[in-house]
Design a protein around this nucleic acid. Structure first.
Lengths: 187, 187
DNA sequence: GTCTATAAAAAGATAGAC
DNA sequence: GTCTATCTTTTTATAGAC
């Protein structure tokens, strides 16, 4: 990978952080310029489409990360509990133990909702299907497994909201810790 | 109640809708002016503190509604399942069957987070305690009941995020429908 | 690829008439 | 209590030098 490519990837990670903490409307070019260390004109050089293109780029990175997580989950050795445990480890890291919000939730607010609804919906469906695939592979009924996939996403998203709202990561940590068993529990 | 008081209350409800759908940064004075039918100068007449004061007013209305819901829940006749069912009916209405986001989640994004964190945290705690009180009253262990209070808020918030993200209210409706039994389930 | 400078548009806020 | 008009600041976006 070339030097400029990794540098651009670092900028994308900073953009992810900004958009998920401030949302689309709150992440102003001034904040973005400050965080990345790039002048506004430089930002438009890398992203001619402005904030829209920045978010699109971040979403592409997220899609790739989610696909990787999905593949890993099914390639991991062991039973469903072990596989889900590994997914939870990744989630815990991605959300900094509940201290950082989810970009997908942030993008469903304000003017961003109409712009990115399609890609956000797709990402959520992939995530749900990733959880369901593990459970189906472990012998769970497909309908129940997909409902459990929804439950997994719901619990993670809800725990993130509560952790942000209470300014306390404890609820997120508890949900993540209980998640594998919660999802595997018989109906 | 005087005519102007109910008129002001209607404006507060429109403000609630704007802030929860667009967030603090996305709810511009132009949008607010358009939705309320009041000119910008009139808005500053009613809320000299600008958007900050508007949000504060909305939060006060929300606090009153939550206190009322809490009291009603404990005064309702019947067992815990019946009481929680009534709470779910209220939530279903408040969130328009999952079609409208939660203000508390919206306020945890962007510049609003630092401004309103304290009041949001307090509201969430009252909500959690309201659920726990019903369960404790039904004989549940206090520690478990408070955890279930957290679970209730987490499930509602997460279901709202998923419903917004998928642009489909079905997950919210399912979670709400299952919530009373989910919360009452033995450990 | 980055910068300074600048322009154009939008947002927040106020003055003063009615 | 509401309006028009105005002002200030911020935001988005671009031009052009290096």
């Amino acid at each position: 990978m070339s030097k400029s490519a990794t540098s651009k990837q670092n900028h994308v990670l900073e953009l992810l952080d900004l958009f998920r903490q401030f949302g689309y409307d709150g992440a102003t070019l001034s904040k973005i310029s400050q965080s990345t260390g790039l002048g506004k004109a430089s930002l438009y050089h890398h992203f001619p489409g402005g904030k829209d293109e920045m978010v699109e780029t971040v979403l592409t990175t997220l899609e790739q990360g989610l696909q990787q997580l999905t593949l890993e989950a099914l390639q991991t050795e062991g039973d469903a509990l072990t596989r889900l445990q590994k997914m939870c480890d990744r989630l815990n890291k991605a959300y900094d133990s509940g201290q950082k919000p989810c970009l997908l939730a942030a993008l469903m607010l304000g003017s961003a909702k109409d712009m990115f609804q399609g890609r956000v919906s797709k990402l959520l469906q992939v995530w749900i299907e990733a959880i369901a695939a593990v459970l189906i592979d472990a012998g769970m009924d497909e309908t129940l497994a997909r409902q459990r996939g929804e439950d997994g996403v719901i619990l993670v998203q809800g725990a993130l909201i509560l952790a942000q709202g209470l300014d306390d990561p404890a609820p997120f940590r508890r949900i993540i810790q209980q998640l594998p068993e919660t999802l595997c529990r018989p109906a």
